[in-house]
């Protein structure tokens, strides 16, 4: 998901820490208590969460770029306002998440620097290009749909600040998927050219969206600790299946074909999808997706070109504080 590169919780180091404290901590988690910033927590829990929450934050911020690519070209004023508000929301979500990560001890600046240095990951999905207006519909419908699938259980995550941020995010995000689906409905009721545009977008985004849920359960060995700590409540494959089952009827309503000829519905009603190309996933995570370089370049440029503004604000604040001290001394 937005933290898919993770799926590798820190190995539990409770042996090194006070065993009694660790046992107490786990008992609190098992009793569905929330952990708050100043509470004692195992170092590995702190590290895992800092990584997961900051990756999630980076994903929201980098995620502004593919959709932001269409703000200036939205085809009507109504669509333009809605898209701008949506991309702005993503910025807000990144901001809430950085704040949640900061309660664990790292500063936003450190976390952002790690991302700009290429040391921290963000979701692979944002390394694909938005080529047509239908991509904006598809991202809202599928990418936000997948994100919501993942984020709803995170509202019950054991770490209080993360859970609270996710509640706020989920509340705000409810319009995003509807916004996207409305675009798709409009395209699919439109001209042949518009329908073809919608189908083409679905063809390009379908498999990358399925990859958002992360590697198959069989291949991800490290989610045990995250599960025990109740950071993660469903496995990658469980969430992926839930998403596919919810999406297939929506595609059918649109009259679009999911680009998986091997897909069949099983006896229990689940839609069984074909094998996912995990080589592509690994390549994109490794920096070789179609837009990795562009995304990083755009974020670095904004950061570098904004440095003088941040410096000015800091310098002014220092001057003003100095003047106030001087005045008080008079």
């Amino acid at each position: 998901m937005y933290t898919q590169a993770l799926n590798t919780a820190e190995t539990d180091d409770r042996g090194l820490e006070d065993a009694a404290k660790a046992a107490q901590f786990q008992a609190r988690i098992d009793a569905e208590e929330r952990i708050e910033p100043n509470d004692w927590m195992p170092a590995a829990y702190r590290k895992t969460l800092t990584r997961q929450i900051s990756q999630h934050a980076h994903s929201e911020i980098v995620g502004m770029l593919p959709e932001g690519n269409w703000i200036t070209r939205a085809p009507t004023l109504r669509r333009k306002g809605a898209l701008l508000a949506k991309v702005q929301d993503e910025c807000g979500h990144g901001l809430y998440l950085y704040a949640a990560a900061e309660t664990l001890g790292a500063s936003r600046e450190e976390l952002v620097d790690a991302m700009l240095a290429g040391k921290a990951k963000y979701s692979s999905i944002f390394n694909y290009p938005t080529l047509t207006w239908a991509d904006i519909g598809t991202i809202g419908w599928l990418v936000d749909g997948a994100a919501i699938m993942n984020q709803i259980p995170l509202c019950r995550c054991s770490y209080g600040p993360y859970a609270r941020a996710m509640i706020r995010v989920c509340k705000e995000e409810s319009f995003h998927q509807r916004q996207g689906y409305e675009i798709m409905v409009t395209l699919c009721r439109g001209s042949d050219e518009q329908k073809a545009m919608a189908q083409d977008a679905l063809n390009r985004w379908w498999w990358p969206v399925l990859m958002m849920f992360g590697p198959p359960d069989a291949a991800s060995q490290h989610s045990d600790a995250s599960t025990r700590w109740k950071i993660k409540r469903f496995s990658n494959d469980e969430l992926r299946q839930k998403f596919v089952d919810a999406t297939v009827p929506q595609a059918q309503y649109l009259g679009l074909t999911i680009p998986d000829p091997g897909m069949v519905q099983d006896a229990e009603g689940h839609w069984r999808y074909s094998e996912i190309d995990w080589t592509e996933f690994k390549q994109v995570l490794a920096g070789n997706g179609p837009c990795n370089r562009d995304r990083m370049a755009a974020r670095r440029k904004a950061h570098d070109e904004g440095a003088w503004v941040r410096e000015a604000a800091a310098a002014y604040a220092a001057k003003r504080a100095q003047r106030q001290t001087a005045q008080a001394a008079e």
Binding site: I61, M64, L65, G68, I71, T72, L77, K80, G81, L84, A85, V87, Q88, C91, G92, G94, L95, Y98, A298, K301, A302, E305, G306, A307, V309, R310
Partner: peptide
């Protein structure tokens, strides 16, 4: 709206987008 995603700080992305949305309205 051209600034959205490219502002000097995230807080300013929010502010500039708000102004843009007021004006588009």
């Amino acid at each position: 709206s051209e600034w959205c995603g490219h502002a000097p700080i995230l807080e300013e992305d929010m502010a500039l987008s708000n102004i843009a949305l007021d004006l588009i309205g």
